[in-house]
């Protein structure tokens, strides 16, 4: 069990890769995963990745000295202005599944 297991169809997850000396907003490639458009299997797939990402997340500041990081915003209700959960995962600690989710979205998710 993780705190992401309670996310339901109203949830929205945003994921981007930020920072770096050559930071350009376009290269952050922001991605949003709308749980309303996911099957329950796909939601579980994403929640498992979030739980793993949380283990790798940094509680200290990230990004210092141009080190890149993944930033994850989780909203339990998609139209909330502020995220309920925000995670920063240093690039060198990021689980492969998180990188895949950022790059290829739900391509590797079950149907």
């Amino acid at each position: 069990m993780s705190r992401f297991d309670e996310l339901d169809v109203d949830a929205l997850v945003k994921l981007s890769r930020e920072g770096g000396v050559a930071y350009m907003p376009t290269l952050a490639r922001p991605r949003a995963i709308d749980f309303q458009r996911c099957s329950s299997n796909q939601r579980r797939f994403v929640c498992d990745i979030l739980a793993r990402a949380e283990q790798a997340a940094s509680h200290d500041s990230v990004g210092k000295g141009d080190q890149r990081y993944f930033r994850i915003e989780v909203r339990k209700r998609r139209d909330e202005e502020r995220p309920d959960i925000e995670l920063s995962v240093p690039e060198q600690c990021a689980p492969q599944e998180l990188v895949s989710l950022w790059l290829r979205g739900m391509d590797e998710a079950p149907s």
Binding site: T26, A32, E91, P95, S100
Partner: peptide, 29 residues
């Protein structure tokens, strides 16, 4: 699922660049 301007602008260069990021993280972890 890629959002925002990537849909408008995602050409070969950006795709190539995105894909290369993939291969980074295994050893560092």
């Amino acid at each position: 699922h890629i959002l925002e301007r990537l849909i408008e602008h995602g050409g070969d260069r950006l795709r190539h660049s995105a894909l290369t990021t993939q291969s980074l993280d295994q050893s560092l972890r």
